[in-house]
Amino acid sequence: MHIVVCIKQVPDSSQIRVHPVTNTIMRQGVPAIINPYDLLALEEALRLKDCIAGTTVTVLTMGPPQAEDALRKALSFGADHAILVTDRAFAGADTLATSYAIAAAIRQIEKKEPVDLVFAGKQTIDGDTAQVGPGVAKRLNLNLLTYVSKIASLDLDKREIIIHRRAEGGVQVIQTQIPCLITMLEGSNEMRFASMDNMFRAARHPLQIWNKDAAGIEDPAKIGLKGSPTVVSKVFAPHAKTIKAEQIDVERKTSKEIATAMLSKLFREHPKLHAEIAKLAG
């Protein structure tokens, strides 16, 4: 079986700051990490590789040359091959142009070895659109399975997969044919700790570096800024609001009195709350 995992290197959003004067987002000096949702996808692919003999895992990323670090990390966890799709022509791509480029690259990969499963993160932490995975599936005409919490079974002979998927108010159990594209849900698994051998292998492994021609881009008008209809009208930091904190005097009071004081304050602030609770309590 051949699995392709699409990953993206993203700035660690927990460390991004806003410039206090210009109010713009400061990316400089912010460490780059693999999008955490992509790691869930990679781990799931590696688990399949552990169970099914003869499985190879190829990681694919589109990004600047520094995205090499993300690929090496993926290799250290146990991926077999790594492809970096990088070209100035891809700069400024939105989700539409990105899914076009990634779909093209996967077609190139298929030329060498057919692809049975494609994994992608459910969304990225820097864009949060959750559009690229579905976009790739559509372009490659793959069955799309999003928010997967578990792969229940995979029958390679029948080319049948059964998965659990989170849906509003419950879990859907879905059976479909491979090839398909899967995005994994958080909490579904946890990334493994690489062995020393894999660390060595990852550090030395030659990466495949593809420019737009190698990635099989047919229509250059569909990539990069040119191929991106999205318009970002404004980037801004939300202003911090100051809310006056209130204190409840607890001196010489019983817990009951304190709780009552707290609740009555709450109800005063949110007049509808009382009715809502009453409704819930039936």
Binding site: F193, A194, S195, M196, D197, M199
Partner: peptide, 9 residues
């Protein structure tokens, strides 16, 4: 010896 599996170098 490192903290990784197969950690002797």
């Amino acid at each position: 010896r490192t903290d990784r599996e197969g950690g002797f170098i």
